[in-house]
């Protein structure tokens, strides 16, 4: 398997299902040692306990290991992708592969968050496809919620157990996988406020401003909500002749905007659009990235011939924004 060698290749993405400290170390220690020996940048983004175990096992080699406490290395999927790209951007050297141990945090997450993280795990196969990165995602089978370990075999093309690589028979195409995930919340209630369809961005902003104000958001938070909705709509309106229908409603903890664009049937918005942060040159998905980044959760679907973006924005009770 090419991933074994030091030759830079495209993205290699393995899951490691471990049930003990020894099993974690059986994968991590040779993975890190081989990378450091080859002069590759190596990152371990995992739990503090695992970082401690790994450092102890590596001995003096631990000095060369980059580490990050995984809960804070990208709080949400869109930030996680930016964290990976940021690490790669800072550490990568021409002609040399980068290695990452990237253990997502699963405990205590809501069902919606788990679905989002699983979708991102799958999406990384597309999003990072061009990067010479070998990423291993450890899953602690002692603690992950039911179903999460099984899903790892659908979101990673292969498993790495100790030093042994086994292809995952259950691996699924990321776009299909994303489309199969449950919606992040119920459809608009009958009480939802609606507007459009419209091609006028000013009308979209007015609608967003009115709904944000009605939901008790003011000042900077209202302005950010308007910007997020505008950027999501702007992405949909980029197609020739496009119009968007808007609805908005409140949930406990969130103000929800749904934007629907009929067609065009041959160019739906990809479910994984807007996960990569803006780069040096303008990108078609930059605005969608900003909407993802400013919202709590942004879901993209193509259903019944229409692209649909559902954007959840933290409500006025979000204590971090008080």
């Amino acid at each position: 398997m090419p991933a074994d060698r030091g030759e830079p290749a495209g993205f290699v993405h393995h899951a490691c299902l471990y049930g003990s400290d020894a099993e974690f170390l059986a994968m991590a220690v040779p993975f890190v040692r081989a990378g450091l020996a080859a002069g590759e940048p190596v990152l371990a983004a995992t739990t503090p306990a695992n970082i401690e175990l790994l450092r102890a096992a590596l001995g003096r080699h631990a000095h060369a290991l980059d580490t990050a406490e995984t809960a804070y290395f990208g709080r949400r999927p869109v930030e996680r992708v930016a964290a990976f790209l940021g690490y790669h951007g800072r550490r990568a050297r021409p002609g040399v592969r980068t290695r990452m141990i990237a253990e997502p945090l699963w405990q205590g997450r809501s069902a919606r968050q788990i679905a989002e993280w699983q979708r991102m795990e799958s999406g990384l196969n597309l999003l990072l496809a061009a990067l010479p990165v070998w990423m291993v995602c450890p899953y602690d089978t002692r603690t992950v919620p039911p179903g999460v370990a099984e899903a790892a075999c659908a979101t990673h093309p292969a498993r790495l157990d100790g030093g042994r690589i086994t292809p995952c028979a259950a691996y699924r195409d990321p776009a299909d996988y994303a489309a199969s995930m449950p919606l992040p919340g119920p459809p608009p209630p009958s009480s939802a406020v609606r507007a459009g369809p419209t091609a006028e961005r000013a009308a979209v902003r007015r609608f967003a401003r009115d709904r944000a104000t009605a939901a008790g958001l003011a000042g900077e938070r209202a302005a950010l909500a308007v910007l997020a909705v505008h950027e999501a709509a702007d992405h949909l309106l980029a197609s020739e002749g496009a119009r968007v229908a808007l609805s908005a409603w409140e949930e406990p903890g969130a103000l929800v905007f749904e934007l629907r664009r009929p067609g065009p049937p041959d160019s739906p918005v990809p479910a994984l659009a807007g996960y990569v942060p803006p780069g040096a040159a303008p990108g078609a998905e930059d605005g969608l990235w900003l909407a993802r980044r400013l919202g709590v959760c942004l879901d993209v679907r193509f259903h019944d011939g229409e692209s649909r973006i559902t954007l959840r924005i933290a409500g006025r009770g979000d204590a971090e924004a008080l």
């Binding site: 910007l227 505008h230 303008p282």
Partner: peptide, 9 residues
Amino acid sequence: EFLDLAGLR
């Protein structure tokens, strides 16, 4: 009053 991301860029 409003500046979008592409304008900021």
